Simulated assay, not measured.
Amino acid sequence: MKTLLISYAILASSLSGQLFAQHEHAATSSSPMKVSRTIILQQLLAEKGIDNREGQMLIVDYPPNSSSPAHRHPCPTFGYILEGEIESVFEGKTHVYKKGDSFYEFTNGLHSSARNTSSTVPAKLLVFFLAEPGKPTSVPEK
């Protein structure tokens, strides 16, 4: 279990940076393809000081011209761009993240958009959440 905690700490520190996030939302009506996500790790944590939390890693695929609607993450969120480029608007500030860039998004910040601006190149994002078990990691903004 200590190895798992150390792995999470290394991942979190390697993914920290500027603010951002994205996720499980359909693409806008102008986009023919949908943003998709695939969970690659989900582990309940029972370590001293971080009990009742779940580490969750997932891959978010952004086809060309796709986007996700406004949302919030009710947990700390770390991201790393694996492929392509994503334009993100978080708390009113626009960021453009390219392959190799990392970011951190604080709990419940408004992520008003995330999109792949390329008409030909897909984008891929690795996301790490430190969430409450059984709770959603992405909540649509009303």
Rank of each mutant, 00 (worst) to 15 (best):
L45K: 10
S67K: 14
K48N: 00
T137Q: 03
N108G: 05
T120V: 12
S118I: 10
L125I: 04
S68R: 05
I10S: 14
T107R: 01
G109M: 09
S31P: 02
P76F: 03
T3K: 11
F129D: 00
I39V: 13
I81W: 00
H23P: 14
V35C: 07
K99I: 13
T3R: 02
E105S: 10
A114V: 02
N65G: 01
A21V: 02
T107K: 07
K99C: 09
K34M: 04
E85Q: 10
F20W: 07
S118N: 13
T77M: 12
H111D: 06
S66R: 00
P122N: 02
F128H: 00
K99M: 15
I40P: 01
S29G: 03
P32I: 12
N65P: 03
S66G: 04
T28N: 06
I40Y: 04
T38E: 09
T137A: 02
N108F: 10
T28C: 09
L45G: 07
A12C: 15
S68Y: 07
L58D: 08
Y104R: 00
R72T: 10
Y8K: 01
N108K: 11
A70K: 01
F103T: 00
Q18H: 08
K98G: 01
F129I: 02
K48C: 00
T94H: 12
N108Q: 11
T28G: 13
V96F: 01
P69T: 12
S138T: 10
G100W: 08
A26M: 05
F129N: 01
G17P: 07
P69Q: 02
Q22I: 08
E47L: 01
E132S: 10
D101N: 15
F20Q: 04
L126H: 12
L41T: 15
H25V: 12
S30H: 14
G92T: 09
M33P: 09
S112P: 03
Q18Y: 12
G109C: 06
T107M: 02
P133Y: 00
S102I: 06
D101S: 11
G92D: 08
T117W: 08
S30G: 13
S67G: 15
Q22Y: 10
P74N: 08
P63D: 02
Q56M: 14
K142F: 09
E87I: 14
H111K: 14
I86T: 07
G17Q: 00
G84F: 01
S13A: 15
A131M: 08
K48D: 00
T28I: 03
E85F: 12
G109P: 00
S30R: 12
L11S: 09
P64F: 09
Q43Y: 03
G109T: 03
Y104H: 06
Q43P: 07
L11N: 09
A114W: 03
R72E: 02
A21F: 13
L130C: 02
V127I: 14
I59L: 15
E91Y: 13
E83Q: 06
H23G: 14
P69V: 11
E85M: 13
A46V: 05
D61G: 08
H23M: 14
I50C: 02
Q43L: 09
L126Q: 13
A70G: 04
P63W: 04
Y62G: 06
R37S: 15
S112Y: 06
A9N: 11
C75M: 12
A131H: 07
S138C: 06
H23D: 11
E105T: 05
S14P: 03
S13V: 08
N116H: 02
I86A: 10
T77N: 10
A131V: 03
L19S: 14
A114H: 04
Q22R: 08
T28R: 04
Q56D: 07
R53H: 05
